[in-house]
């Protein structure tokens, strides 16, 4: 590698858990990663700041108008912009507030002084600026993060699966959670997490977003067949998918 690309991490509204997941590596892996890239800005791990970087890794949801010029500046500076985690990729759970009016969520969060903090409709990064690669998930999958960064350095596509979680869940030989009477968004949710939740006693929340060309009609029929009411089903979809126009055509 002639020159290592400079990588900077930025966060907007989020828990910063994906930044931590990104460096949840063995010391050897971390050293190997630093052989390939140069991390110049990373709030969770280093204190330096830099105005010069090649790859911007952006975490968090855009929830304030004042976020927009900051994000645009990052976009202008970086050659490649990657979203990190559900919050920046699909607006994540921060977009739950979009189901309420602004007055309602302001009142809910700060009843004593509702207009104290600036806030607006929660949006994903790609709604504001062009994104070159998405690393989905809440939190991200560390192996996938490493692979995407490596692929971009090598000039390869990020290689995020376009098939649903069921593929990985079956490969892991799990008994389908529907057979246990639990509803799951695995059939329409993008794989790449190695079916983390259903393989560990949970079910899929849809945190990685919806696959291209999902059969949502069939997914809904199935959930109803397994005794979910329409409202209960909407609740399942609401957690991560407010920004998805196929799921919520009337969303903000």
């Amino acid at each position: 590698m002639a020159t290592k690309p400079k990588v900077a991490f930025f966060d907007f509204s989020c828990c910063e858990g994906c930044q931590l997941a990104a460096i949840d590596l063995t010391p050897e892996q971390l050293l190997d990663l630093l052989e390939v890239i140069d991390i110049v800005e990373f709030r969770e791990a280093i204190s330096e700041k830099s105005d010069s970087y090649d790859i911007a890794i952006v975490e968090g949801t855009i929830t304030r108008d004042s976020d927009i010029p900051r994000l645009q500046k990052i976009r202008e500076t970086a050659k490649i912009l990657i979203t990190l985690g559900a919050c920046s990729t699909i607006a994540g759970i921060n977009a739950l507030k979009n189901f309420q009016t602004k007055a309602e969520y302001q009142q809910d969060v700060y009843p004593d002084d509702p207009t104290k903090y600036e806030t607006t409709t929660a949006r994903a990064v790609h709604e504001i600026v062009e994104v070159d690669a998405f690393i989905p998930g809440c939190p991200i999958d560390t192996d996938e993060f490493v692979r995407v960064v490596k692929n971009l350095v090598l000039g390869k596509k990020p290689d995020i699966p376009e098939y649903p979680v069921c593929v990985e869940c079956k490969r892991n030989e799990n008994v389908c959670v529907y057979e246990k009477g639990i509803q799951c968004l695995g059939p329409v949710t993008r794989a790449g997490c190695n079916a983390r939740c259903p393989s560990n006693g949970g079910y899929c929340f849809g945190c990685r977003g919806i696959i291209p060309e999902p059969n949502l009609k069939s997914q809904q029929d199935i959930m109803q067949r397994y005794n979910l009411t329409f409202d209960q089903m909407q609740e399942k979809f609401k957690l991560f998918l407010e920004r998805n126009k196929e799921v919520f055509p009337d969303g903000k």
Binding site: P164, C166, P187, V188, I211, N215, S218, Q219, I222
Partner: peptide, 8 residues
């Protein structure tokens, strides 16, 4: 038309 293309 019912198929989820889930690969299971």
């Amino acid at each position: 038309s019912r198929c989820l293309s889930c690969g299971s």
